[in-house]
Amino acid sequence: MNSSQLQLPSYLEQSDAVRSRFTELKERESVLTAKNLSKVFTSPQGKKIVALDNVNLEVKRREFLSIIGPSGCGKSTLMRILAGLETVTDGVAQLDGKTIEGPGAERGMVFQGYTLFPWLTVKKNVMFGLKMKGVGGVTAEQEALQWIELVGLSKFAESYPHQLSGGMKQRVAIARALATKPRVLFMDEPFGALDAQTRAQMQHYLLQIWKNVDVTIVFITHDLDEAVYLSDRILVLEANPGKVQEHIEVPVPRPRTPEQFLHPAFLATKNHIEHLIHPPAEDLYDDLPMLKMTKLGDEVE
């Protein structure tokens, strides 16, 4: 590992600015709390799968929290419980001190797959939540257009989702979720299907939106750079059963810029999470038990 050869500070070291930001953040009221959350799935064959085991979590107002962990560790399950789309087996999940009992407009969600309503134009998609609330036509339309402008898609207000690219669809999904002014915005690998460049652009957009809108964001990703770049805190889960491995306070100062990808604190944090998720294992790069199947002298390496 190259980065370990560099002299990196500990990820626990925080500059004054960062430390004071966290002190201030911890004083804010909690928006989301999870206490001793457990979730057990029972397969049709009767087998029990423990997806979450005694998870505790507290998210402050206007915090940006990322959840990271190996595949199958229960990230989506945790988010779906908080969004009210899944029931708990044990423990409580609360929003502003009230137990979550089902999905609602105060907890918006952006899914990994594109879940825009294909039969509605971009504008009508964004208006959907407002319409459900009973907000009238012209008001809803104007508000929707503002959100569409915020995600930079004014030109496509009358287009149908199938006429948009993947990145554009996710921007509409974000606008749609934000239009109902939720307390929390859940995002489950929202940029997973995008190419690196679009993804960087979307991260940039998201930070700007978050800065200008009163919303708390919970964000699932597999991309360590993305998690460190965006978040205040990172929740690392471990698999089988899904448990909290560590809460990490990201020591990278704000405002975040793409140049910070080489910031020592950034690299230190990333390095640490990497070790948490993929503990160095010798057998990972063992030689395969293979016979040589090429001609002599036809070497590629």
Binding site: P103, G108, M109
Partner: peptide, 9 residues
């Protein structure tokens, strides 16, 4: 599910 998180009853 998306509609539910947008407040649809």
């Amino acid at each position: 599910e998306a509609a539910q998180t947008l407040g649809a009853k």
